[in-house]
């Protein structure tokens, strides 16, 4: 029994450590122009705490628990949904400079 618990803990630790390395690697080279959208996108991703909020709301028994978990759901949803929408809006500005746009339009036209 105790070995089983130990292995779960170890698995969680392994996931945690490997995720750290993936997180470090994945953003090691980012151009400065993308700093804000990347921050905003990462910000939206941690909005999945919504999942945790739903889980605790499911097993909330007392009024206090239920109130707090409901607030948590609202806050997490704002973080997640709003975060992805605002990041997308930021990235719309990356459609390129007018010149590049013309070139890509031309290329697109030729393809057609």
């Amino acid at each position: 029994m105790s070995t089983e618990i130990m292995s779960t803990e170890l698995a969680l630790l392994a996931i945690f450590l490997l995720s750290i390395f993936v997180g470090f690697e994945v953003v090691s080279k980012v151009s400065t122009t993308l700093h804000t959208p990347l921050m905003s996108g990462a910000n939206a991703i941690h909005g999945v705490i919504l999942v945790g909020a739903i889980i605790v709301a499911d097993h909330s028994k007392t009024t206090l628990e239920l109130t707090l978990s409901t607030i948590a759901i609202v806050l997490a949803t704002i973080n997640m949904v709003g975060g992805f929408v605002v990041t997308d809006r930021m990235l719309q500005m990356f459609k390129g400079k007018p010149k590049e746009k013309k070139q890509s339009d031309e290329a697109g036209g030729q393809n057609k």
Binding site: G23, F24, A42
Partner: peptide, 24 residues
């Protein structure tokens, strides 16, 4: 909560956010 998905998501943001903070 013993939820692996939350651990992955949170750690990714924590690690990449730290690097990003340094880059900024």
């Amino acid at each position: 909560l013993e939820n692996t998905m939350l651990i992955i998501a949170g750690t990714l943001v924590g690690a990449s956010g730290t690097i990003l903070t340094r880059l900024m």
